[in-house]
Amino acid sequence: MENGERSEQLDRLIRIAIPVGVVLALLLVWYLIVHVENIPPYILPDPIAVAGALVKDWPTLWPAFLVTTKITFMSLGLALLGGTVFAVLLVQARWLELIFYPIAVVLQVTPIVAIAPLILIYAPTTQAALLICAYLVAFFPILSNLVQGLKSVDHNHLNLFELYGANRFQTLWHLKLPTALPYFMTGLKIGGGLSLIAAVVAEFSAGSSGAGSGLAFRILEAQFRLNIPRLFAALIMLSVLGIAIFALTSFLSWLLLHRWHESSLKREN
């Protein structure tokens, strides 16, 4: 028993130590390459210079981080709401699906980023344009996964509900939505990642400046000024944001599914 406990502790230690070790090793390799090859900091700064920039430029970068975070989460939230409502409507009424299917396909296969310039022209403010772009990109994976999930209901379960005289709303609420939950979570994870990408790309094409601009603009600006350490610092903040979104959606998925769904179960045999 004690052996088992010890090996479990060791296991946990290894699971933390290895990723941390890999990151540290990569940083060391980065540092060594910069110094052995004598690469100038305006091409590739070493990790220490990047850390310095992160601290020094914090007053510029932090508000930008907040702007990007806000756009990402607002668009994701709207996409969740819109995608869910729309998916439920589509599944409830066949003719609605027939009407919207071609539109959905066109919007889904067109790279939304390509219509960002148009959105920038039509939208009242740059912020609104960014929000619309990120929303459109996150909306479709959530919609199509949820539609798929709502249609994947076991026929035996449907018979069961019919037999016990369930009405449409009961069937939706007690059967279709829980069945679709794992699909919804997949859509949410994909949508979460995409909304950040879309927010960044839309900002690249918007090229807005001044107080209300996000991390993507700070990256462009740093590139123009050859302020490469700041560029790296902004990149790190973006990837921290990406990781946070991933962790949040994964945690949410675990919270809702771990008690019953196969994807969250440990295999024991």
Partner: peptide
Amino acid sequence: FVFQEPTLLPWRTVAENVYLPLQLQ
């Protein structure tokens, strides 16, 4: 009706599954 398969709802506990027909009423 008892089907060939148990057709239990996996996201519900045993008691909640038994409750289902009553809940629908």
